[in-house]
Each structure stands twice: as structure tokens, then as C-alpha cells.
Simulated scan of single mutants.
Amino acid sequence: MGLHMVKAVPTPEEIRAAHPMDKELQEIKAKRDAEIKKIFTGESDKFIAIIGPCSADYENSVLDYLCRLAAVAEKIKDKVFVIPRIYTNKPRTNGSGYKGMLHQPNPEDKPDFIEGVKAIRKMHIKAIRETGLTAADEMLYTDNWPYLEDILSYVAIGARSVENQAHRLTSSGIDVPVGMKNPTSGDFAVMLNSCVAAQAKHTFLFSGYEAKTDGNPLAHCILRGSLSKSGRSIPNYHYEDLKYLAEAYGKYKLVNPACIVDANHNNSGKKWDEQPRIVNEILHSRRHSDEVKHLVKGVMVESYIEDGNQPIGGGCYGKSITDPCLGWKKTERLLLEMAEQL
């Protein structure tokens, strides 16, 4: 047998009991969740910025970044609602490379999932306590969700997971917005069908139980660009793409039609410094069409303290060890300019 059970990991209940969310932090999350819900249902016209490192790596630099972000978020809060990216799981196209803090709480050390589940929960809680911001994370594995279900304000389903039945059904039991990315093929039908599944009620096996879900009315689309057969990036953030998605939404029985546009990945061709230009084009498209404005609720931006990326152990504080990110100075300017345009 090629699958070997190494050691048992503490249950979500055990981890939550050891590292609980106190009442003050629960109240912060409840208030933010209510405001985010209003944006997705159309009751609020604030614009969402889901922004932060490609992957959370070192706690000190991540929290440093988040404190800077919180200061800017306060300045623009009347127009822009900031949701920090604290992505603790990192999908890898070919399985190699840093897989995130859950896998390796110390990127320069060997994998340790027991310390990993503790580290990601402690960091998310510390981030709320120090900044007042509740975060987004990617649900790379459905088994991870219960460890953070009382903490996260936004969940993303990646391009390689969006067709997975377990991700779709688990998303239907989540009570915060879940963004379904288009697959790497770019197929809108796959993404929209994932939203249909997530908004519906289901009964299925989950973590050793027969589980039932209520459906998630806040499940929505994320446009992240696609890849051609030859491996060329094909963007899907242009005005015509947004209009097409608005029309496609009309063919599906979905409530709260909404879209977040990922300014990086295949939309930028992983050219991190193109993200501000792409965000500006999205904002222009929203000004040009009420239909697009009502559909596009926000953007995703990958940013950290320093521009670009580096290998693990590269030694540059606050520089991504996965995909390249927009540096802090450019990030701050982007957020302030974003608010001016809304």
C-alpha cells in the first residue's frame, strides 16, 4: 500500500477549544460579515478589495503587512471594504514548492501538519486582534474548513478545485461568501454550475458524518483569466467579458449575481506590476455600464511588503516566496486611487 498514515492530527473541535475566538473578536467578525453580505446582496454599493500576499509565509511579516493595510483600510472605509488575504494553503500546479503555512508553518523546515493547523488558526486570530480585519483564505482541502469556519469572512475556491464535488457541496454549507474561480480552461459554465451547486441544499458525507447543508446564497464567480492549449495566458477582465458574464448569469437560477475580478494570475499573465492597470480598467468598465457595476463587487490583488518574489530562504523581509506580488508603496497608492475613482 502506497498511502501511509503518519500520525493523527487534532480534530477541529480540539484546535478551536485550544485557540478560541473570544467574544470581542466574534463581535468584530459578525459586524464585518453583515457588511460584506450587504455588498453581495446589493444593499451596499461599497467596493471590495481582497488583497494580500499570494501565500502567508512568515507570521511577523504577514502581520506587519496587515497592520499597514488596516491603516489604509480605515482611510477608505466609506467606499472600499478591505478583506485581507491570509492564504494558508497554496495549490501547486505540479505538486512541488511551498504548499503554505498549514503544510509548513516554517517554510524553511520540514512539513508539520499538527503545528500547521495550530499556526494558521493562531495567526488568523492574532490578525483580527491587532487589525480589526477578518480575512479571506482559500479552501484548498475541504477538511481544512472546520479549523477556520468561525474565523473567516470570505472563502475562495481555486481554479483547480472548482469542478470538485466535495468543494461545491461543502461551499453550500458555508455562511460567508464563497468565490468560485473559473477553471484554467476559462469555461464560464463550469464556474456558474459550481455556483448553482453551492447555492443549493445538499446531503452528503463530510468528516465521517452524514451532513446536510442549507445552501449558500452568497456563492459567486471569480474571474482569474485562463490558459490556452499552448499555455498562453488569456485575460477575462475586459468589458466584453464582464458583459458576457452578466448575460450568462441570466441563464442560471442564481440569487445575488456577483463577480470578483482577480487582477493577477492569468489575467495579468503573472506580471504582478500590471495589477494596478487592470484594476483601473475594471473600475472604468463599472463606470461605463450599470449592469457591470452591479455585477462586479470587487477585485483581488496579490500584494506584500516588497515587489516580486524570491526563493525560500531568500532573506528579503516581506517578499513573496510563491507568486510575485505588488509591493507595499504601490499597493497603498492603488487603494487610495481606487477610493478616489468610486
Rank of each mutant, 00 (worst) to 15 (best):
Y147G: 04
K90M: 14
F113M: 14
D323L: 05
N309P: 04
A127S: 11
K253S: 13
G186L: 08
Q26V: 10
G308Y: 06
V296A: 02
Y147P: 02
K253C: 07
V255T: 15
I48L: 00
M101D: 00
F40G: 04
Y249M: 05
H167T: 09
E337N: 06
E291G: 05
L133C: 13
D112C: 07
L66V: 06
T213W: 13
A8W: 08
M180A: 00
F47E: 03
R68A: 04
C195Y: 03
M139D: 04
Q341K: 15
I234C: 05
I282V: 14
R121W: 03
A156Q: 01
K37E: 15
K75E: 12
I174Q: 00
D45N: 14
E340K: 03
A166D: 15
T41K: 08
I50W: 03
E247W: 11
K38L: 09
G318A: 11
I48P: 00
S153H: 06
P146N: 10
P107R: 04
L326Y: 00
Y317R: 10
A18C: 11
L63F: 09
N182R: 10
G318Q: 07
N216G: 00
K99L: 09
R168K: 13
I278D: 02
R232D: 15
K329R: 14
M1Y: 12
K122A: 07
L63Q: 05
A17R: 15
I151T: 02
I312F: 02
K46N: 02
A166N: 15
A71Y: 12
L102A: 11
Y209N: 15
I120K: 02
R32H: 06
I151Q: 01
C325K: 02
Y304H: 08
A71P: 10
G179P: 02
N266L: 03
D307R: 03
K297R: 14
E24K: 15
D187E: 02
A211K: 08
K38I: 13
L63K: 06
